[in-house]
Design a protein around this nucleic acid. Structure first.
Length: 439
RNA sequence: CGGGCCAUAGCGCAGCCUGGUAGCGCGUCCGUCUGGGGGGCGGGAGGUCACAGGUUCGAAUCCUGUUGGCCCGACCA
C-alpha cells in the first residue's frame, strides 16, 4: 500500500476526549472517529486490524467445528418476552418501534434468536452436538460508555452458541470453546488468562472470563505467577479429543478478578500470587436449560422423550480487542502491533521523495516485499523526516525500513524494530535476506 | 443515575471575571529555502463563538433553559 493513496488522518496532538492510552492512540493513528458517545466509525487502519482479529477468531471457530451464521442486529421483542428477558433487561436495551408500532430492539445479545433458529430446525439428538456462531454488531445502552472502543455502546462481537443433548456432552462443548479461546488469543499474539467468573444476567452454573494482562487494564486481577508463564502446550489441537485434561491444566491455577478474589481460597505459601491489571476480552457460559426451557427448544432423546436442549454461549469482544491489544502493546511513541494482527509487516520510509536513488531503492524493496506475499506500507509522502518517523512509530508496524540519501551513499539501509527500537544498518542483500527469512 | 467539568476555525487552546471590529499554536493552500526525529521565511483560506430565549444602544462575554461531550462512582464483552 502506498501511503499517498491511503486514508490515514493522524493527529499530532492528543484529542481531549480521550483519557486512556488505547483510545488516544486509536484517535491519533486515525483508526476510529467518534460519532456519538460510545459509537464509532472505523477508519481504514482501524478497519484492517478489526478485520484481522475477526478473521483469526472466525478461523478458530470453524476449526473447532462451529458453523457460521449471521443473525440480524434488529430483533423482534416477541422472543424476548418468551424468555422473560424483555422486562428483565432494563434500560441497557435499546427499544425501537417500527412504522406499524411493533416493538423491536437492537440486539444486546442473541440467545433468544439463536434458540428460535435451533428449535425450528433441530428435533433429534442425532443432529447434535451443534455449535452456531456469528460475528455481528451489538448495542447496549451503557450507563457510562468510556475508554473508546473498550467500552462502547455499539460493539462487534463473536458469539457462539452450543447445543447438546445432556449435561455431560454440553460440558464437552464448553471445553472445546475453552481451548479454542486459548488458541485464538494466542494466534492474535496475546496472553489471555482464563478466570473463573460470575455468570451475571446470562445465568448458568459454569463460566470463565478471559483476561488480557495490561498495566493500564480496567480491572484488578490476582494471578499465580506460574499461570502467567504457562504456555499453551498443545500444538495441533484435535477438537475431537476429550479436552478436559487440557482445560484442567489452566483451571488448576489460581486466578481471579478483584470482585471474585478471596485470599482465603488460595494458600499462597510460596508467595507466587501476583496482583496486576487486565481487560476482559472473552466470556464463556454454560447455562444448561435456562433458555431452552421457557422457549421450548426441546429435542427427542434415544428413548423418544422430548427434553430441553443444553446450551452454552461464548463471546469474544472483537472491537474491544483492538483497544485491548494497544493497552498491552504500546510505548510513549505509539502503538506496537503484534506481528499476528499488524495491518502491515513493514513500513518503508522514503526520507527524500523525488530523489532518484531513494525512489528507486524504495520502490525496488517495496515490490520485492510484495512479491514475497508480505504486507507492506510504503511512505511515499513528501514530508519532513521527523514527521514521517514520528508517524511510523505512532502507527506501530513491526519493522521500519528507513531509506535516505545518507544510507544510499554508504549502501546501507536502516531496519528498525519498532518494539525494541533497535536499528540495524544492513546492506541490500542482508536486508533482502532478513525479509525472506522473517516471513 | 449521583458527583465534578467542558462546548470559540479540521485539532489543541486563549478571550468571558470588568459587554464595544474574533485571536494564538498546529494542520491546510500558494511561493521559497530546506531535508536522518513533528523545520525556516513570505503570503492566503477558514468561525451564525453548541442551540433557544432574555437583559442591553450593543452579548463569545451577563441571566435562564435545552442539547451534546468528558472524568469519578455504582453496572458490564
Amino acid at each position: 500500500m502506498l501511503l499517498t493513496r491511503f486514508f490515514l488522518p493522524v493527529l499530532k496532538e492528543n484529542p481531549k476526549e480521550a483519557e486512556i492510552i488505547s483510545h488516544i492512540n486509536m484517535l491519533r493513528a486515525g483508526m476510529i472517529q467518534q460519532s456519538a458517545s460510545g459509537i464509532y466509525s472505523w477508519l481504514p487502519l482501524g478497519k484492517i486490524v478489526l478485520e484481522k482479529i475477526s478473521e483469526i477468531c472466525r478461523q478458530e471457530m470453524i476449526k473447532s467445528g462451529a458453523n457460521e451464521i449471521l443473525m440480524p442486529t434488529l430483533q423482534s421483542a416477541e422472543i424476548w418476552k418468551e424468555s422473560g428477558r424483555y422486562e428483565d433487561y432494563g434500560k441497557e436495551m435499546l427499544r425501537i418501534k417500527d412504522r406499524n408500532n411493533r416493538n423491536l430492539l437492537y440486539g444486546p445479545t442473541n440467545e433468544e434468536l439463536v434458540t428460535e433458529i435451533f428449535r425450528t430446525h433441530v428435533k433429534s439428538y442425532k443432529q447434535l452436538p451443534l455449535n452456531l456462531f456469528h460475528i455481528q454488531w451489538k448495542f447496549r445502552d451503557e450507563l457510562r460508555p468510556r475508554f473508546g472502543v473498550m467500552r462502547g455502546r455499539e460493539f462487534l462481537m463473536k458469539d457462539a452458541y452450543s447445543f447438546d443433548i445432556d449435561y455431560k456432552s454440553s460440558i464437552k462443548s464448553y471445553n472445546i470453546m475453552f481451548i479454542a479461546y486459548m488458541q485464538l488469543f494466542k494466534k492474535m499474539g496475546l496472553k489471555a488468562i482464563p478466570m473463573k467468573a460470575d455468570t451475571g444476567p446470562i445465568g448458568g452454573d459454569l463460566s470463565h472470563e478471559f483476561i488480557i494482562i495490561a498495566d493500564t487494564g480496567e480491572s484488578e486481577v490476582y494471578v499465580e505467577r506460574e499461570l502467567l508463564n504457562f504456555e499453551n502446550s498443545f500444538q495441533n489441537i484435535n477438537y475431537d479429543d476429550d479436552l478436559q485434561e487440557e482445560v484442567n491444566k489452566f483451571t488448576s491455577f489460581y486466578a481471579a478478578t478483584e470482585e471474585k478474589h478471596d485470599a482465603g481460597n488460595f494458600d499462597d505459601k510460596a508467595n507466587t500470587l501476583i496482583k496486576t491489571r487486565g481487560i476482559e476480552v472473552g466470556h464463556i457460559f454454560h447455562f444448561g436449560q435456562k433458555y431452552s426451557l421457557p422457549m421450548k427448544a426441546t429435542i427427542s432423546d434415544k428413548e423418544g422423550v422430548n427434553v430441553p436442549v443444553f446450551m452454552g454461549s461464548y463471546g469474544v469482544g472483537l472491537s474491544r480487542l483492538v483497544g485491548a491489544v494497544i493497552e498491552a502493546n504500546h510505548d510513549k511513541h505509539g502503538i506496537i502491533w503484534p506481528k499476528e494482527i499488524t495491518p502491515w509487516d513493514y513500513n518503508i520510509i522514503n526520507l527524500k521523495i523525488g530523489d532518484n536513488d531513494c525512489d528507486n531503492i524504495c520502490l525496488n524493496i517495496y515490490n520485492l516485499i510484495k512479491d514475497n506475499k508480505i504486507d507492506v506500507l510504503y511512505d511515499d509522502t513528501d514530508e519532513r523526516t521527523g514527521a514521517k518517523l514520528a508517524r511510523a512509530d505512532l502507527i506501530g508496524l513491526p519493522y521500519q525500513i528507513i531509506i535516505g540519501p545518507k544510507g544510499i551513499k554508504e549502501q546501507l539501509y536502516d531496519l528498525k524494530c519498532r518494539k525494541s527500537g533497535d536499528i540495524s544498518r544492513l546492506s541490500y542483500c542482508e536486508l533482502l535476506n532478513f525479509i525472506q527469512t522473517n516471513k
